[in-house]
């Protein structure tokens, strides 16, 4: 029986979702819903449900937009961040949340990712990163580790992978973080902070794809893959409590970089105010 959360925030008519058994995407979608729910019910500073806009591109991850019962727009492959930019500019009070995948946001949409990060436009990007193109059946993506197999890398992947959170930070994102499927509570908190963040925020959430990536690379079933996350993806405090030797091969879950660069729509609003102030002084009608 669906939980209250599902009843409240998901479009029951459109469930069950299309994801394979064991896929991590459903957990990440739930994390997003819980994060939003907690923000809506935040007594000190609640956000309005109708101000949430979910924007997605194309791929397994992007189907989440259709399941989540908010304003939702399922756009073209790679372009979710660009559509979201227009939405945010048209109505800056909206909380525009982009749900995307590793291929959608760092291959075909990589250019939009780095430029939105550079502008510090107030979007929240949640990347469902499963290291593979799932919708098309298991081709390698920009995050597939070097040497791993995929249907288009039958002899092992020659490419070297992106670390999307580091990429976004390098491009100037004022909030860049990493989450995963296993550490749901930590990931929910990160997503909440990302949505609260005024500028551009990115949360690279490591998903699992037992069907394609896992099978191709002998990573075991979903439980095995989650166990790997538990042992190798470590919340910030734990990660930094370890020695460098202990950290080898492991990654931090948490906020990787954070700053308070000016937000784009606020900066643009200043330009409008300045132009209109000038027009009024010069006797313009200011309409």
């Amino acid at each position: 029986m669906p939980s209250d959360l599902v009843h409240l925030y998901m479009r029951i008519d459109h469930l069950p979702q299309i994801w394979c058994p064991g896929c991590g995407n459903g957990v990440i979608m739930r994390d997003v819903a819980v994060a939003i729910d907690e923000l809506i019910h935040d007594e000190e500073n609640s956000i309005n449900r109708e101000d949430i806009v979910i924007v997605s591109g194309i791929g397994c991850s992007s189907r989440a937009a259709g399941y989540l019962d908010f304003n939702s727009i399922h756009t073209t492959h790679g372009r979710a961040i660009a559509f979201a930019s227009g939405i945010k500019m048209a109505n800056p009070k909206l909380h525009v949340i982009v749900l995307t995948g590793d291929g959608d946001c760092s291959a075909i949409g990589g250019n939009h990712l780095i430029h939105a990060a550079r502008r510090n436009l107030g979007l929240t990007v949640v990347c469902f990163n499963n290291d593979i193109y799932g919708m098309t059946g298991g081709q390698y993506s920009p995050t597939t580790p070097n040497g791993d197999k995929a249907t288009t890398a039958p002899y092992g992947n020659v490419d070297r992978p992106f670390d999307i959170a580091v990429l976004a930070a390098g491009a100037g994102a004022s909030f860049s973080a990493r989450g995963d499927v296993y550490h749901a509570r930590e990931t929910i908190d990160i997503i909440k902070r990302a949505i609260r963040h005024k500028g551009f925020s990115l949360v690279d959430v490591y998903s699992i794809c037992p069907t394609y990536y896992g099978r191709k690379n002998r990573k075991g079933d979903a439980v095995e893959m989650l166990r790997w996350q538990k042992e190798n993806l470590l919340p910030t405090a734990r990660y930094y409590s370890m020695s460098e030797e202990e950290r080898a091969g492991k990654k931090q879950i948490g906020i990787l970089s954070y700053n308070d660069y000016p937000e784009y729509t606020e900066e643009y609003a200043k330009i409008i105010a300045a132009c209109r102030g000038k027009a009024k002084k010069q006797g313009g009608d200011g309409t």
């Binding site: 727009i73 073209t76 660009a82 048209a90 250019n111 409008i272």
Partner: peptide
């Protein structure tokens, strides 16, 4: 900006039309 409107120089033409569609959906003539 003199008319209270907004201009964005995008990173390419693909994102330009995408942003225009997003802004129009959200209520602005674009």
């Amino acid at each position: 900006p003199q008319e209270g409107g907004k201009f964005m120089q995008m990173e390419d033409e693909i994102s330009s039309i995408a942003a225009v569609l997003g802004a129009s959906a959200a209520g602005m003539k674009a």
